[in-house]
Design a protein around this nucleic acid. Structure first.
Lengths: 151, 151
DNA sequence: GCCATTTACATGCATATACATCTATATTGT
DNA sequence: ACAATATAGATGTATATGCATGTAAATGGC
């Protein structure tokens, strides 16, 4: 019977990625509970804060989605809870009537600043337990994997 | 102003994991479209097939969820589409009236067998583009990250 | 044996994810 | 300028994810 090599398919890189992501996301999510953000929301605010620092007048859904490797429709929905809390806002793009430029608000800035120490706790814990070298290596491999399939 | 080090928070390991996982999951999801499975469903069937090979009379939700690092409630819901398609089934545990033992069906076995070549296409593409050594290294780091936060 | 506690699973809720499709606007070819 | 095409974003639908809570069954203390 069988015909299927269990050792081959058990080595699935995608399954390994998804499994580790579940665990590590929990680590960060739990760390951020006190400030009422998820790990994903922290990441969105970080990107918008980075854009703000670069004096960019907001990021379009498309540009931000590209940077995050996220579908634009997913990003639209992920921004909603943040918009409801007043942490992000958007305004029309004067250059393109189809686009909306998303920015971090003053409140979003405060919330991000409040979140950083909690985020750092998770980031440090992973860094220490996995090892600084291994963590850096992991990050490089993840970024390479992402970049390879750039569309 | 600012007070936030963008370089520090842009280096978030969790965000890197999630971003790479989105991309790589798409690679596998697209490869599996012809057989009507998602990457996650392929992973579930793999585990159940592995248990079947070991002559285990089905896996409980709890045991399988532990192996996958997945919340039991998530697993319950992820199994539903597979059960509807008749690819998995469950029966009462004679030793424990609370548990349900999940097994892969004959149809699930066929479907998995049908899926393997498509899955292998994605797995091979990633392996070639990232490099065999880097892929193995990535897998080891992912498994280590997962294991470290074993509960 | 009985009651308190623990465990296994299901369900309600909120967020996360992507594809197909729709609308509105921009761009391009002529 | 106009028509055809392409692009930006929103929405419907399905799967994925975890927490809080509820229900039923097992376990432990007495």
């Amino acid at each position: 019977m069988s015909d299927i090599d269990i050792r081959e398919i058990a080595d699935c890189t995608c399954a390994g990625l998804r499994r580790a992501t579940r665990r590590i996301t929990q680590l960060y999510d739990h760390a951020l509970v006190p400030v009422g953000l998820t790990a994903n929301q922290f990441s969105l605010l970080s990107h918008l804060y980075g854009a703000e620092m670069m004096k960019v007048g907001g990021l379009s859904i498309k540009l931000l989605a590209d940077r995050l490797g996220m579908d634009p429709s997913t990003l639209t929905r992920n921004l909603k809870p943040l918009a409801i809390k007043g942490l992000v806002a958007d305004h029309a793009d004067p250059k393109d009537g189809r686009a909306r430029l998303v920015t971090i608000t003053a409140r979003g800035h405060s919330k991000l600043k409040e979140a950083v120490p909690h985020w750092r706790g998770a980031q440090s814990e992973l860094n220490e337990k996995l090892g600084a070298g291994a963590t850096k290596q992991l990050r490089n491999l993840l970024d390479a994997s992402f970049a390879i399939f750039e569309t």
